[in-house]
């Protein structure tokens, strides 16, 4: 009677794991397609953009309204500069370029080297480079439209003043620009609230900027021109940059795990075998002694 009660009670207790297993529901976010390369990097394909590269290990995204492309690739190099040169050699060997600005930002604990280039004869390049051992991963936006300039920048605000940071960059890129914005207003984009401003260049042309502050970093996209490409490229580059990740290489840990797991299983089996052998030995000895006694 009492033992039966115990059994019922234990059966009841045994069902608790079933109740305990349901974890909190994860928040639902839309699933976006990724380009996963053979070179271990993964980059999201921004909505509206199309992956057209047929080369292994190279991603090339284009958009019907934009004269330009987003590239992602991995190169083996000695340093950032030679990595960038190698990337340009692969992508645009025929074009001559000159460097405008360089710097470093930290995103999710990883360092990205940023670099801006102008293409001689029109167009420009925004490049981000991340290093993993001897491999450099390059994510860049190549603007081929000679009518406009399009730069994307991420600035780690040391002075915690986004306006100062933007003014610094603008005056570096466009000396003589009027740093007082003509218009400035908040706009709601799918990736958050941005501030859209327009500035006046000395030659009368307009400069459009979009910027946002995330944690201590200010993200700015600058367009010299009609300001039509800005939103599309900003969104796409943002998605690509934030979604970019490198598949880590940790085979050695997997191997260690397999060795340890196999060691534990084999250890138990071996200990059982050894104990069985010893028992057999004892048994034989006892049998022997028994015969001797008789």
């Amino acid at each position: 009677m009492k033992t039966r009660l115990i059994i019922y009670f234990l059966l009841l207790v045994m069902t608790t794991p079933v109740i305990a297993q349901d974890a909190p529901e994860p928040t639902q976010l839309p699933v976006i397609p990724y380009y996963s390369s053979s070179q271990n990097f993964n980059v999201p394909i921004p909505p509206g953009w199309r992956q057209i590269s047929t080369e292994a290990g190279l991603a090339e995204f284009i958009h019907p309204d934009v004269d330009g492309a987003i590239y992602a690739l991995a190169v083996q190099a000695e340093d950032v500069q030679s990595a960038l040169n190698a990337a340009f050699e692969q992508l645009i060997p025929e074009l001559e370029i000159e460097q405008r600005l360089t710097g470093v930002i930290t995103l999710d604990g990883l360092d990205w080297y940023k670099s801006l280039y102008d293409i001689v004869g029109g167009g420009n390049i925004t490049a981000f480079v991340q290093q993993r051992d001897s491999t450099y991963y390059v994510l860049l936006y190549l603007n081929r439209n000679p009518e406009i300039d399009l730069y994307m920048l991420a600035i780690e605000a040391e002075n915690n003043n986004e306006q100062v940071s933007i003014e610094e960059v603008l005056s570096q890129l466009y000396p003589g620009v009027d740093l007082e914005p003509i218009t400035s207003n908040e706009v709601e984009l799918s990736n958050g609230t941005w501030i859209r401003s327009t500035y006046q260049l000395p030659d009368g042309e307009a400069l459009h900027t979009l910027h946002q502050v995330r944690f201590d970093t200010t993200y700015v996209v600058i367009e010299r021109g009609d300001g039509e490409t800005l939103d599309t490229v900003n969104k796409a580059l943002f998605t690509a940059l934030f979604g970019f990740f490198v598949t880590p290489d940790n085979d050695e840990y997997l191997l260690l795990g397999i060795v340890v797991a196999a060691g534990l299983v084999i250890g138990l089996i071996l200990s059982m075998v050894v104990r069985y052998r010893n028992l057999q030995k004892d048994e034989r000895l006892i049998q022997q002694l028994k015969q001797d006694v008789h």
């Binding site: 976010l29 699933v31 990724y34 999710d108 934030f242």
Partner: peptide
Amino acid sequence: PAVIGPSPQNAEGVFE
């Protein structure tokens, strides 16, 4: 972690 690992934060969606 839950059964399937974390997704890259800040991107505009989740990784499949």
